[in-house]
């Protein structure tokens, strides 16, 4: 009982007890509340800045990619216009024909590539003729749109004749002609045609043909590259061995 009375008295007196805090206490509370409020608002602000930045980036990317895509047709249009002018003024100039002749040859090549796996070796000549005939058909379609000129046609015709002769020669020599051989012959002929077109009759240079020629030189086959690398390696080893033996 004594203990309970004692503790009850302690409790009463302590619960009544009040201590006045220092004046700085409220300022500290207020400061801490403001700091926590700022800490909350800062991430949102940063999110806003980040979102804005991403938005600007997105718009910039869109703008530039759009600019690129639109610029390509524009150049095509100007080319066609430039090409169209000589057609009307001077029928001797064959710029339009040349510009159009390139896709024809490429298309014929694609058709060749498609047809090669399906045919047997014995029918190589027939295939060649079919392929060339189909390329000719394409050419006739183009004729409806473009004015054709005898000079380039004659060039293509002579090349076709050359290729056919080469194939026949190969057939007589080896009795069989592989698809790869025909393919390489056609490609060679195509390159030759393009090369011949670089210099025009009026001694000017055809930009498109020149570009195609340069690209051909750049696009070396994988085999060539491997051979070159092997050659380099071999030469290095040879010099190293020679140096060591001295």
């Amino acid at each position: 009982m004594g203990r309970n009375k004692f503790e009850k008295q302690l409790k009463e007196q302590l619960q009544k007890r009040e201590i006045k805090p220092s004046k700085a206490a409220w300022d500290r509370i207020s400061q801490q509340l403001e700091d926590s409020g700022k800490a909350k608002s800062i991430p949102f602000r940063w999110y806003g800045i980040a979102a804005g930045f991403i938005g600007i980036l997105f718009v910039a990317v869109l703008y530039f990619t759009r600019d690129e895509t639109t610029s390509i047709p524009e150049t095509e249009i100007t080319n066609s216009k430039m090409d169209a002018v000589p057609v009307t003024t001077n029928p001797e100039m064959n710029e339009v024909e040349k510009a159009k002749a390139n896709p024809v040859v490429v298309e014929s090549q694609v058709q060749e590539e498609k047809s090669i796996p399906n045919t047997s070796k014995g029918n190589a000549n027939k295939r060649m003729e079919d392929a060339l005939a189909s390329s000719k058909a394409e050419e006739t379609k183009m004729e409806k749109v473009v004015v054709r000129f005898n000079t380039s046609e004659a060039l293509i015709e002579t090349k076709i004749a050359e290729v056919v002769a080469q194939v026949e020669q190969l057939e007589t020599e080896n009795s069989t002609v592989t698809d790869a051989e025909i393919d390489s012959l056609l490609r060679g002929a195509q390159r030759q045609i393009l090369k011949d077109k670089i210099f025009r009759s009026d001694k000017s240079v055809d930009a498109m043909a020149l570009l195609a020629d340069v690209e051909n030189e750049i696009d070396r086959s994988f085999r060539d590259q491997i051979f070159d690398a092997l050659k380099d390696g071999f030469l290095k080893i040879r010099t190293a061995v020679a140096d060591r033996n001295q």
């Binding site: 302590l14 007890r17 009040e18 201590i19 006045k20 805090p21 206490a25 409220w26 509370i29 207020s30 509340l33 409020g37």
Partner: peptide, 19 residues
């Protein structure tokens, strides 16, 4: 978040709570 109201609450209870 009214700072004035918070101060009034603080002034009312701070001495007891410090005890």
């Amino acid at each position: 978040g009214n700072r004035d109201a918070q101060r009034r609450l603080y002034e009312k209870y701070a001495p007891k709570m410090l005890g």
